[in-house]
């Protein structure tokens, strides 16, 4: 294990050459592959316990309250400001070309297809997924799961699966709410404040926006994001080191991994649907 260390000189020195470079590359690759393997196995374990957890809807309902209802204020306030700022920006740009009448349509398409699901997903990760990771990490570090196993209660079915189902259910609901509030925000700034004609605003929005197309594409994305971010949050909480630093690290990892995966998946889904 001392291949990178020159013991005779008593100081570390990196060996040059192709083989040591491959070796140095090897460990992170093995580590990531291991992470991917354990994550896939964890997802499979959750999926296998979802039917059992659905027999106790009360457990899911409690998590819907914690993950969904408690995220409502941030989703509504963020949605309003997103709608206001996008409406203002689109109006300023389109005004140069005398095309302000399509502001409603432009904002609706941008929100339905991309901004709504992505913003709601990122807010959900920051607000709810971190709480999930911290709570699961703390339960694990205080050996609550071990105590449940002693009592012949499956912690994956009682604690993990309900959070997974609730997370996958809540994000689409929160996305729909964010979209409605954002469009109301755009209406407030463009029609009520700037004075654009209401008929052009709603008429063009309906003409250019398809419910079964633009809106459902965004909703599909939010379902995928909900499943993915919940699984990542639960995995990091479940595999956290049983220390305060370990739980803190797991919470940070949840935000980093879930946010980057969300943005990557957004591109993949958009590409798939576009083709």
């Amino acid at each position: 294990m001392n291949e990178g260390r020159d013991s005779s000189l008593g100081r570390s020195r990196r060996r040059k050459g192709v083989i040591p470079a491959i070796r140095r590359l090897g460990w992170p690759l093995v580590e990531k592959t291991y992470f991917l393997g354990t994550f896939a196995r964890f997802c499979w374990m959750i999926a296998a316990r979802v039917p059992g957890c659905l027999k106790r809807p009360r457990l899911v309902w409690v998590q819907v309250y914690h993950l969904g209802t408690l995220s409502l204020p941030i989703i509504i306030v963020a949605g309003l400001f997103i709608g206001l700022v996008i409406g203002l920006q689109f109006h300023t740009i389109l005004d140069r070309y005398g095309q302000t009448q399509v502001v409603g349509a432009a904002v609706a398409i941008a929100l339905f297809r991309e901004l709504g699901p992505v913003f709601a997903g990122l807010l959900f990760i920051g607000c709810s997924c971190t709480a999930v990771t911290a709570s699961i990490g703390l339960k694990r570090s205080s050996e609550q799961f071990a105590a449940m196993e002693v009592m012949a209660v499956d912690p994956l079915e009682r604690e993990i699966a309900p959070r997974f189902v609730a997370g996958a259910l809540c994000l689409p609901l929160l996305t729909v709410i964010l979209l409605a509030v954002a469009i109301t925000g755009t209406y407030a700034i463009v029609v009520l404040q700037i004075g654009m004609d209401e008929g052009f605003f709603w008429g063009n929005m309906q003409r250019f926006t398809k419910f079964f197309g633009d809106f459902t594409e965004g909703l599909l994305k939010s379902v995928v994001f909900g499943v993915m971010s919940s699984a990542i949050a639960l995995y990091h909480g479940y595999s956290a080191r049983p220390t305060a630093e370990g739980v803190a690290r797991a919470t940070t990892n949840t935000v980093v991994y879930a946010s980057l995966t969300l943005l990557g998946l957004d591109f993949v889904i958009t590409s798939l649907l576009a083709s």
Binding site: V64, L70, I183, F211
Partner: peptide
């Protein structure tokens, strides 16, 4: 609380669907 979330989501969906 959970009922409130569902209610707001349904109203939002109806708003988007009717406006679209």
């Amino acid at each position: 609380g959970a009922g409130l979330l569902l209610l707001i989501a349904i109203v939002s969906l109806a708003f988007i669907a009717l406006r679209a």
